[in-house]
Amino acid sequence: MVRDKLGKVLIMNRDPLFFIINLIPYLAEGLLVTLQVSVLSFCFGLGLAALLTLMRVFGSAPLRWISRTYVEAFRGTPTLVQLLLIYFGLPSVGVKFDPLTAAIIALSLNSAAYQAEILRSAIKAIPETQYLSAESLGMSTFQIYRHVILPQALRTAIPALVNEIVTLVKESSLASVIGVVELTRRGEYMVAYTFRALEVYIAVALVYLVVCLAMSQLSKVIEAKFRIPGYERGRI
């Protein structure tokens, strides 16, 4: 009903700005689903990425191989194809998910590959001398990673990780293809309803833009909070 009323108001009014502004509350509901998909995918992705990184750094040769192959496979194929494979492909072997679950699974698996690369290169960026001096104090490998390497690597990884969640917010629009009613899909509904594709998609784009800008801003705050004091002088 609400939508009918909104629709009528929107169709009646020819002013594009008025149209876009009034569209935004309706799109905001889609934004909640978009955020749900991207934030959950990021978190699951991070968990899996941690496991992949563990395998890569400490694992035996086969485990390292599995981890590397996983990363290459997911980074080397389009996200959309991965999503279609999980939603339309897996049912034929008896594995069926609803659209929302399928989207979250696909994006989690995909993001895990990218986040694993982020974590790995952050660990690699810690100079050898840090390991040496920790070892020279008699620390065990576990202690070295727990107290010396990971706290520094995670700080290094923050910008790239925030960048990854911004990417996820944008890529979650792919979920519209399998029928998840998130931000982009809501836009499509509105286009079908009002036939004003230009204004609708501008409004949709604006919502994405605001969210992504806000996240980058948040990233700066987090980075500043965790920055190693003295590091800004560029010495290390």
């Binding site: 008699g138 700080r155 190693i228 003295g230």
Partner: peptide
């Protein structure tokens, strides 16, 4: 290693 102190040319303190 706990009985032997090691001081490096490049200090190698933990910056964090």
């Amino acid at each position: 290693r706990q009985m032997v102190g090691f001081v490096f040319q490049s200090y190698n303190l933990f910056p964090h």
